[in-house]
């Protein structure tokens, strides 16, 4: 489904991604872990064309996309839904309009269809009653879930999460993680989660990749990770709540 071939991304003199190669089969839940500033978010943003790689190839669904124009990318972005680190809700629109935003612009759907899709998306993130509120009136955890609903409304085949639980309290973190697993299985999407939460990765990931300074230092199933001898992985494992 998704392939990175020797992708290099530089910001000025700093090289963020160093010849990164990565394969993600359809339907997998992949966790990418690493300390802050190792290029995890950059990796996601290069995938959907918000940033462009300096070298290498990116394949999505059998298409090489790294040289696509902004217009060509629109089709790819309809397939890939991204949930940002911040909720990134449009503050001038209600929750309902935020979720309906993409639908209204891409598909000529009858209003009734839009309403039902928005409500089913909001129900999927367990927020059936929030649709008429403004983003400023609901809690941060709720904003996060609305942002997830906005992404789901377009029925993406790939779900990308950029540090979905950073800055949330433990209870909300648990509920967001549960949602990620639930929704990925329910809509059978391919999901890539960028995170530094090893506990959650071990419990819901099919596969985990450990990134350090733009390179993959370890990858494998959760069981494989638990037995890993790589120092960085061991440090992350030490934080796991059992």
């Amino acid at each position: 489904m998704i392939q990175f071939e020797k992708v290099v991304k530089r910001f000025g003199p700093r090289t963020i991604l160093k010849e990164l190669t990565l394969h993600v089969p359809a339907g997998e839940i992949l966790f990418i872990l690493g300390t802050s500033g190792t290029g995890k978010s950059v990796l996601l943003k290069t995938l959907v064309g918000l940033l462009r790689p300096d070298e290498g190839e990116i394949w999505i669904d059998g298409q090489e996309v790294s040289k696509f124009s902004e217009i060509e990318y629109l089709g790819i972005r309809k397939k890939c839904g991204m949930v940002f680190q911040q909720p990134a809700l449009f503050d001038s629109l209600t929750v309902f309009e935020n979720v309906a935003f993409g639908l209204r612009r891409h598909y000529r759907l009858p209003e009734a269809e839009i309403v039902s899709r928005v409500h089913s998306s909001l129900a999927a993130v367990h927020l059936p009653d929030a649709s008429e509120k403004m983003p400023g009136e609901i809690s941060y955890g709720m904003q996060k879930r609305v942002s997830l609903a906005r992404t789901l409304a377009l029925r993406p085949q790939v779900l990308l999460f950029d540090e979905p639980t950073t800055g949330l309290d433990p209870i909300t973190t648990a509920s967001v993680n549960l949602l990620i697993e639930e929704l990925s299985r329910q809509f059978s999407t391919t999901s890539i989660v960028v995170s530094h939460d090893m506990t959650c990765a071990l419990s819901i990931a099919d596969r985990i990749i450990m990134l350090d300074q733009g390179r993959i230092v370890e990858e494998g199933s959760p069981d494989h990770m638990k037995r890993s001898q790589v120092p960085l992985v061991k440090e992350f494992l030490a934080e796991v709540v059992t």
Partner: peptide
């Protein structure tokens, strides 16, 4: 970025 992801 969210706008661009939604194809706007």
């Amino acid at each position: 970025d969210a706008l661009r992801m939604l194809g706007i």
